[in-house]
Amino acid sequence: MTLQPENLKYLPSHEWVYAPQDGSGIATIGISAFAVAELNDLVYMALPKVGQQIEAGQEFGEVESVKAVSPMYSPVGGQIVEIHDGIVDRLETLNSDPYVQGWLIKVKISDPSQLDGLLDYAAYQKLLAQNG
């Protein structure tokens, strides 16, 4: 399984998580192309520190665009093990590739069953269609 939109799970608030079945228990998290388009012009982003514990559904960062500050929520709980170095100074990366190049944090998942409660690609696309 590769990091492509079709292989990700989503929150209705437009964060994605990629959790490969490789035994590492490490999930990669970002925000979807739809979210980036909605946010339009990303200006600032704040991300947490490595080592921080986070709950599923908890805010892990903030992003500012066109004078609006919005939270970003973690689809899974666990320990933050990596922050995408320098991404807050290269937010335009999210416009061109919000998935592979535009990931934000990596989390050591505490409870893999949390993934089951997330939207798969088809369900997320349906949500976009319903609300678009």
Binding site: H14, I31, A35, L39, V63, S65, V66, A68, N131
Partner: peptide, 11 residues
């Protein structure tokens, strides 16, 4: 309105 779905500002 549409606030529940959007991200970012409400223009």
């Amino acid at each position: 309105e549409s606030l529940s779905f959007s991200k970012g500002h409400s223009e």
